[in-house]
Design a protein around this nucleic acid. Structure first.
Lengths: 213, 213
DNA sequence: TTGACGTACGTACACCGTACGTGCCACGCT
DNA sequence: AGCGTGGCACGTACGGTGTACGTACGTCAA
């Protein structure tokens, strides 16, 4: 039926497509095989098992990050850009994001952003230990932000936007939560993300100056 | 066999036990029933389905947070304490952490920390909108940190400690990563977490002063 | 020509979540 | 006391899952 002869990249692409269309829960070897018009066990000629397939999905998504690093720009701008690059892929493959962050992988795809970030921080004057600490903090913040943004919707629910259902919060037990229900209920992910990145960038900038960079 | 008559709390406790002993992947209704010495379908008299059971697990774990909030303490200390409280439960239920962060729940268990944090931030002089933004940023950082700390080990692997395998990194393509392999390979989660919290606390403290709080 | 090898595929097994029906028992009402 | 009723434990069964294994069919080397 299909001219091309079934390959690992084709299988991974089908998996990514399926995840984006129907969510990570819909992924099964049988389903992917069906989407490719192929027998189930044929997949195992190219992929050792399902876990490895999901790892490959994560790696492929991660390697799609577009880094437009400008060495002449201010280091703070470069940090900002790299943070946004992570968020871009999460925006491009929203349903895959959970898969990506769920599996830690030490492939070159995951290492390239690390290399870029470390280089940027070193060029900003931070020593190795500090660069690693700062990188880890940024990664933690970005991962946490993307998880919130993606919403971790297990089903096909149309992105239930309200974090807090106003009607259900007891004003006596939770006065603050109730008073701020409007703010808690809506969330501009873009500006929220930028707010955090800005705070972090300025915090490490202050730290750099104080150290006498 | 068992004297007590099967109840929702007993089921949830068995699930938590199982997750901590063998990981989240080992959880199945049959397995939980077997651990309780009970028929599989008996569980469904107390829990509508597996997803709801995992939600209950998350809620139970989350409600185990011990808040020792001191209203007389400096607001920065209170923020630090609340951040550490989150990390404590992740330390106490390491394998459950992924389950907790994977499911967003709007129960009172999840709302109480929110209420506490908002109250603290409001008492520090931040207005509602800012308090929500800051809270979201802290949650993102904490969630991201805990995910890294937990390691997201799907199998029973003995907490593979090295993030970067030194031998596999090409020094030409990844000079920074290679040079900092030692720092990247080991991670004192405690001090790493504190570093981030401190940076965030100081960043929002600066922001508060600048605003004229 | 023949052998080996890689690939596609079907079958089979153990396990999963859970819908459904059945029997038991403890209770409230008459 | 007799009876109805409702909740709980349980067995069975169905459609799904990952994947081990055996098989058949290409293509290419000797």
């Amino acid at each position: 039926m299909s001219a091309e002869p079934l390959s690992r990249p084709r299988i991974v692409a089908a998996a990514i497509d399926l995840i984006e269309r129907e969510g990570a829960d819909a992924v099964s070897m049988r389903r992917i095989a069906a989407d490719l018009g192929v027998g189930v066990m044929s997949l195992y000629n190219h992929v050792p098992n399902k876990a490895a397939l999901l790892d490959a999905v994560a790696e492929t998504v991660l390697s799609g990050i577009e880094f437009t690093d400008d060495p002449d720009a201010d280091w703070t701008d470069r940090v900002r850009m790299q943070a946004r690059a992570f968020r871009q892929i999460a925006h491009h493959y929203p349903r895959c994001t959970m898969v990506v962050v769920s599996r830690q992988l030490q492939s070159t795809a995951g290492l390239l952003p690390v290399e870029r970030a470390l280089a940027t921080l070193r060029s900003a004057g931070f020593d190795g230990e500090e660069a690693v600490r700062i990188l880890r903090m940024f990664i933690a913040y970005i991962v946490g932000s993307l998880l919130r943004e993606v919403g971790v919707t297990p089903t096909f629910a149309p992105v239930h936007h309200a974090e807090v259902d106003v009607a259900k919060v007891d004003p006596v037990l939770f006065p603050q939560t109730n008073a701020l229900a409007a703010e808690l209920g809506s969330c501009d992910h873009e500006s929220e993300f930028e707010f955090g990145v800005e705070l972090l960038v300025q915090a490490i900038a202050v730290r750099r100056e104080r150290r006498g960079g």
